[in-house]
Amino acid sequence: MIRFRNVSKTYETGSRAVKNLCLTIDDGEFVFIAGKSGSGKSTVIKLITGELKATEGIIEVNGTNLLTIKKRDIPQYRRHLGVVFQDFRLLNDRNVYENIAFAQRVIGASNSEIKKNVADMLRLTGLSAKYQNMPYELSGGEQQRTAIARALINRPDIILADEPTGNLDEQNSEEIMKLLYRINRMGTTVIVVTHSRKIIETSGKRVIYMDRGTIVDDIPGEEGHIYGMYDPLPQEKKRGRSRRRPQDEDESGGLS
């Protein structure tokens, strides 16, 4: 479970990236964080990964308080997270297999474990036939699937995807989202930062809207919603999705 309680992040320049943020994401949830550029979406991801430290408030991720976590414990904490970026961030001098295996090597897995786990990930992401290809030989969608496989191979509790479809065409975006839904159905919490209305509207998943560093809307997902990305969401269902204002959560003290 991820909990933000009155979290603010102010940079040294004085600019405030997030203000008084209150948020709870349960285990196994699929959440979109949406908003315009500069609304604080990516800052939320960076606060969860521990790349940034909140200037105020409390952040708890699966029981770990990120304000009090010791520097030396951060690597161990990050092993429970998988991060996917818009620009894939693959290692261009290594093939697909080595890119995926890299995450396992970093945590000191044995060669036999690496072999087995990489094969599993290649199957899951549909890249078995491309394992020897270099990143520049792959399409954007395949590169992103490689990045997802790398994020997933250490079996993280949470996947954080920062604009994972930002550099992809429609078809590849759909494939990536399907893969992320599938990963979520396997029990992994998935948080996707996006500003694609199309993806959000057709997903039926919880959406947190941000603007100028605060949550302006928090729309819960639909129970059992398994629409494909471009499956039209029935209008009556869309209307029926009740909006949960962020302050409701704050008032209820649900973060304690």
Binding site: T49, E51, R72, P75, Q76, Y77, R78, R79, L81, V83, R89, L91, F102, A103, V106, I107, G108, R150, N154
Partner: peptide
């Protein structure tokens, strides 16, 4: 730099 950034986010230790 890129490799180190990825390593850091994957959970590589300072030593690594």
């Amino acid at each position: 730099r890129r490799e180190n950034e990825i390593m850091r986010l994957i959970g590589a230790t300072n030593y690594m």
